[in-house]
Design a protein around this nucleic acid. Structure first.
Lengths: 198, 198
DNA sequence: CGACTAAATGACCGATGGTCATTTAGTGAC
DNA sequence: GTCACTAAATGACCATCGGTCATTTAGTCG
């Protein structure tokens, strides 16, 4: 039934993904070599390309996995949210998880910038929703905006704050902390999105 | 007097810098090859390394030149500034110049992220002041802050906004415009830095 | 002109992402 | 058990990159 072979292949793929995950986190995307990934998992270089067509695609698959679980738990909470403020807190709890993992926040940024030069990859990335795109954000927030303020703009502004913080965090000049950013985001959201703010 | 040789060497260097500047702006830092830079200027690859020890150092020199003139005009205006609001406007006029040149804003970001993995380069970059670091910013703002609010934090928050916008701009998802960002920066600065805000 | 030096060249190096013919090892019919 | 078949794994190989360096070309000056 060829069961054993399939399982072995699957296992190999998982081992390679773990190895790659470790190395990307430590050294970054560019600096991690395909040969290192396979060697670290105990395979030869050629094995890699039986599972992915490129280093890029492997990375895409890793981040997809990495964020899938977070998203689901976020979306569960969002279903129960009753106000703009609640939604904002859920969203920033979610973002906080990403930022807290400093190594990966840095790698995300590295890959995003890298991908922005490669049309196909850039497209994949925007489809993958790994970035909190302004569109996604706008949908999350739309139902709770009482004023005429465009939810897209609210989303985009949050993304700016978030990614700006990612850059700061990646460069290691940590003067603002996430709490400050979160507060600023909340203030702006409530001021623009609600009719009455006390 | 060897005058002619020196001038030729200087001219060659300038030609290479122009060539590099064009190509970096079009294709980015990584995607631009040393061989391309020299070929585009009509020289051979080896010539490059008579003028710079690496592609990195050439880039450093280009951005240094690119920003020197901007900084001087900014600093002139800052000498005459009389309020926090004025300082903020001058700073954001300065940042606007950077962001307006979309190609270069993108390359700056690319290089910053790239350099963050290379300790020596990262150090050079922070010394070069090409980034509006929170320290530089704090100095500009310090004299006008009336409250106990730390100028460093004000600076850092501005940098977050600015670099977040750079990322958005680099990825080409332009929903927030610079005016929104500038307004937000001003609001936060005045709210935290002044005792009375009308 | 001849000795010296600076500018320019391009073959070369090691490392990288990616390819592919070859080897190794399960699988299933008989 | 054995044979044909197929999937997994290998590593030599390729083009390209940043960077090096011995060699060539061409000003400089006594």
């Amino acid at each position: 039934m060829a069961r054993k072979q399939q399982e072995k292949s699957k296992q190999t793929k998982e081992e390679l993904m773990r190895s790659a995950g470790d190395l990307f986190g430590q050294k970054g995307f560019m600096a991690t070599t395909v040969a290192e990934i396979t060697a670290h998992a105990g395979y030869s270089k050629g094995s890699f390309y039986r599972h992915w067509v490129s280093k890029d695609k492997l990375f895409m698959e890793i981040i997809e996995n990495k964020l899938k679980e977070y998203r689901s738990s976020r979306d569960e909470r969002l279903d129960k949210a009753g106000s703009l403020e609640e939604v904002m807190h859920i969203i920033w709890d979610f973002l906080e998880i990403i930022v807290r993992d400093e190594n990966w926040a840095k790698v995300f940024l590295e890959f995003t910038v890298y991908a922005s030069r490669i049309p196909e990859l850039r497209n994949d990335l925007s489809l993958s929703q790994y970035r909190l795109s302004e569109k996604v954000f706008a949908e999350l927030v739309r139902d709770f905006v009482e004023t005429g303020y465009p939810p897209e703009k609210l989303g985009a502004f949050n993304t700016v704050l978030f990614e700006g913080y990612m850059v700061q965090s990646a460069l290691g000049t940590g003067i603002v902390d996430l709490k400050d950013i979160r507060e600023a985001a909340l203030t702006v959201a409530l001021a623009n999105g609600l009719k009455k703010v006390q």
